[in-house]
């Protein structure tokens, strides 16, 4: 059975392109319906300023969701992303505000240290869960606390501010109304898409999510791939931290609380299966956009905070239920 499983798994990821397109079209249609509804019911939804806003507001969640997609595809979960984002941000903030550094050097060093801090926690998550075979739910619940505590420890619970003016201005820059920060996120989407759908590395990740034992028996070093998936997620969180700082011009140890849930929601709405092996980065992009459009549109509609929260929850459940039907439709 093992040999046939791996064959059908790898053949599946290539041969099912048509089905994949159909799956993603489903999420895309949901997004388009939302956009049409908000365009018709609100006055300002389809203005260029509002689209710029939505793209800005989607960016951080999108970057975290890209990393999360890698982890969920192998059947894992990363609950630590919000805390790691705070840790990476305060490390980067500390570096960026070191006295006597040239602004350009400070920003570059800060970026490198944010990504390094993210990778550090990604490695920790991956190594511990893969080496001892502990569910990543538990391991990342631990690192959620470690990273948050470390962020508070590093800063003494205070907010870091006063970054170089050019860095602060960079965060609000747009090109033809598209925020530069969102373009960075799109670049990451493109890289993520390429790695997952066009490389052996990506195919093995799907294989692990579908049937870990079969992938192992096929001669792949599952341990390495698992650690790699968590490390990629950590690196994405590090980039997310720098984006947060560029957008809001502060780094605080209490930022990012609950961000993991939004990232997981984007990935799941985007059609990636929580049990792994099925899903795509494009789906995640659409999922993150659905969450962002919903958050924006419901405010423009003038809905109360509590109604907004209920509707957002409802949409997450609806998306997963629809996914069940789509799955049935595209299988067979």
């Amino acid at each position: 059975m093992d040999a046939t499983e791996i064959n059908s798994a790898s053949a599946g990821s290539l041969g099912n392109t048509a089905k994949t397109v159909l799956r993603e079209a489903g999420i895309g249609i949901a997004l388009i319906v939302l956009i049409i509804v908000f365009s018709l019911t609100t006055q300002h939804f389809l203005t260029s300023a509002n689209i710029t806003n939505i793209l800005t507001q989607v960016t951080i969640n999108l970057v975290l969701s890209i990393g999360m997609t890698f982890v969920i595809l192998i059947g894992g979960i990363d609950l630590s992303v919000g805390s790691v984002l705070a840790f990476a941000a305060v490390v980067a903030g500390t570096v960026m505000t070191l006295p006597g550094l040239d602004p350009t050097v400070a920003v570059m060093l800060a970026t490198v240290s944010a990504v390094a801090a993210g990778i550090l926690f990604g490695l920790l998550n991956g190594l511990v869960s893969a080496w001892w075979g502990i569910p990543s739910f538990i391991v990342t619940l631990g690192t959620l606390n470690i990273a948050r505590g470390a962020a508070l420890q590093v800063t003494g619970a205070s907010t870091i501010y006063s970054f170089p003016a050019a860095f602060n201005a960079f965060g609000s820059q747009t090109i033809y109304g598209v925020p530069v920060l969102f373009l960075i996120a799109l670049l990451l989407v493109a890289i993520g898409w390429f790695v997952l759908s066009r490389t052996v590395f990506g195919r093995v990740l799907y294989g692990i999510g579908n049937n870990e034992e079969a992938t192992r028996l096929a001669g792949h070093n599952v341990f390495f791939y698992k650690v790699a998936a968590f490390t990629i997620c950590g690196a994405a969180v590090g980039i997310g931290a720098i984006i947060y700082m560029a957008r809001l011009n502060i780094a605080s140890p209490i930022i990012g609380i609950g961000f993991e849930l939004n990232a997981i929601a984007a990935v799941i709405i985007g059609g990636t299966s929580l049990s792994g092996g099925r899903g795509s980065i494009i789906g995640t992009l659409l999922g993150a956009c659905i969450i962002g459009v919903l958050a924006n549109g419901l405010i423009l509609l003038g809905l109360s905070d509590f109604m907004r929260q209920m509707i957002t929850g409802f949409v997450i459940i609806l998306a997963v239920v629809l996914d069940k039907y789509r799955e049935r439709l595209t299988k067979a």
């Binding site: 609100t42 006055q43 203005t47 507001q57 947060y244 502060i250 958050a295 924006n296 405010i299 423009l300």
Partner: peptide
């Protein structure tokens, strides 16, 4: 901070 930034940007649009 981040939520206030998003929520206010949307209020300002409306």
């Amino acid at each position: 901070t981040e939520e206030a930034n998003s929520v206010f940007a949307n209020m300002l649009t409306a």
